[in-house]
Design a protein around this nucleic acid. Structure first.
Lengths: 165, 165
DNA sequence: TTTTTGGTTCTGCAAGCACAGAACCAAAAA
DNA sequence: TTTTTGGTTCTGTGCTTGCAGAACCAAAAA
């Protein structure tokens, strides 16, 4: 990183690294980061290739990834052929988290399966497994409650702001 | 998979695939799965290489990974040079989850940084960022509460079982 | 019709990674 | 001391993946 790199560029690269850390392409993170700090509301495909100095193929593929995740959205303007992209206003954090929480479920099933297969269910290892299973059952329930709570909170806020109008 | 593969082998391989899906080596998952369903309380290094048909280097590296994560533990028996491994009885699910939750914090910081860098903080994108930031602040707090709740639950159970003795 | 534009899909390459096997090393045994 | 044991670290290989550039394609423009 050159020292005179501006804070936006730095932000974009950091976003890329973060995405990489969670198993997504760096370029997808760069696009996401760029959309965050762009002074425009929506950015064209062509601007992305130019701003991020990336090939069309890379932008094309990574834009699709971001759309699938639900982080960004394609929009078009009448009388124009170009496609523009912006952070998806409809992104559902709850749904997004729910998908990530499914890993817990999967892991719990793995523990349960292991427990079932143990020859002696009264030893330390079995106890350990039981404890882990209990924890995951408990935390999954609680997380569901939490997400429902948030959903209602949002619902209420929406009604409020509608009432104000 | 041959049809006559027994359920333990199947479990071990499934564990391997699961680990792979969350970004860890398949072999680490196999070891974890094997320790789950082994009829022994602890398993030697050599038995792992034999049972999983893997090289010493692979076992060595992946055992270290599992120890670092905190999933398994090395133990030794007096009068013996061999090292044995078992599912770590001290594994702290709470700590484990906390580490995974740190990703949320990191992501929130990314959103906050993006928000700070926006030229116009009154447009839709900024609103979107603010909403996301709020959500992550809220969920982080709630998760901390949850983990604390679980910790206390465990504490209580421990006291109970001690009282019974 | 032919040409241009906007974007997708195909091809090839470079980097990263999990694994095996070999070389290695320290501690115990002989 | 030398030999054996138990395990780690080094080296090479095949597989995967992100990317660029080229080929491609459909729709609009000319």
């Amino acid at each position: 990183m050159s020292p005179e790199m501006d804070s936006r560029t730095k932000h974009i690269e950091e976003s890329g690294i973060f995405f990489e850390n969670v198993g997504l392409p760096r370029m997808a993170g760069r696009i996401f980061g760029f959309l965050m700090v762009s002074d425009k509301q929506d950015v064209s495909f062509e601007e992305l290739t130019r701003a991020l100095k990336a090939s069309k193929s890379s932008i094309s593929n990574n834009v699709r990834i971001l759309i699938n995740i639900g982080f960004i959205k394609a929009i078009s303007h009448s009388g124009e052929r170009k496609t523009y992209y912006c952070l998806s206003p409809e992104v559902d954090w709850v749904d997004y988290l729910k998908k990530r929480i499914q890993n817990f479920e999967h892991f719990r099933k793995l523990l349960e399966n292991g427990y079932e297969l143990r020859p002696d269910k009264n030893d330390d290892t079995s106890e350990w497994l039981k404890y882990g299973i209990d924890f995951y059952i408990w935390i999954s329930e609680r997380l569901d409650d939490l997400l429902e709570e948030w959903r209602q909170k949002v619902e209420k806020t929406k009604q409020n702001s509608q009432g104000k109008r």
